[in-house]
Amino acid sequence: MYRKGDNAWYALFVLPLTLVFVTVVVIPFFIGIGYSFVKWDGMKLNPMTYVGFDNYSRIFADSGFWTSALHTTIFTLASVLIINLLGLAYALIVTSRLRVRNAVRAVLFMPYMIGGLILGYIWQFIFSDMFKNLGQLTGWTRVFFNWLLDPDYALVAMIVVTTWQLAGYIMIIYINGIQSIPDDVVEAAKVDGANFWQTLFRVRLPLLMPAFTVCLFVTLSNCFKMFDVNVSLTGGGPNNATELMAMNIYSEIFLLSNYGYGQAKAIIFFIVIASITLIQVYQTKKREVEL
């Protein structure tokens, strides 16, 4: 049903948003690739010098970047695992026939509503001053001390806060997955004599693979890009021991004013995230079963 003037309507509907989108996302992405080949301190009056692949080869020798990459990997693996296990457990509890289920769901999801920055500040108090305080009161100083001053415990603190923020969110996705499993399939398994664990592992979990794909994707990309909690909880400290990749890139560009070099890191960051998440989605999609 093409009519006269349709092209004008098309432009009127599509152009405004697409213009904004192109200037905010598409152009910056492409000129960002260009910036990764120059040396520049971000000052308009100072010249940019083309350095070819120097920025990229410099990254290989940048121990700070690799340390942050290692911390990001540990943090992401641990968080993704714990968040998904907890989220799935919560979802199984909340979809049971218990009377308190709605209240439980509401409480578990709530932390997600509060932004990462605020959550980080709240927990900063808990892990530093409150833990120290508890140690003095109870005498259990081996558990209760200032976690944020210890490199390993500070990273654990990051994992705890991220889990507290995201587990309830992931739970919501798993709940949807569980509710989309037809009752008759589970009933049939029970009639055939399967016990709770058998129905869980042989029937419900395989049918949950689509939810699993989504949850892994969401947690992987969220944790890998983590910035807000990092800023407010540890600030990257002590001694950069909890500096994650997003923060490393931020400081390289805006604090150290290495615009070209920082942008090269940002491009590597993009390639890593894109590959990891695409591989994950491909791998888990393959395992999805259909009824």
């Binding site: 905010v24 996302v25 910056p28 992405f29 890139i249 491009i267 993009f270």
Partner: peptide, 20 residues
């Protein structure tokens, strides 16, 4: 194009965005 760019992290765009 809209869909594909969803995978780009904000950190990759932030500096050039402010140049634009």
């Amino acid at each position: 194009t809209y869909v594909a760019t969803m995978i780009i992290p904000f950190q990759t765009i932030m500096m050039p965005l402010f140049q634009v």
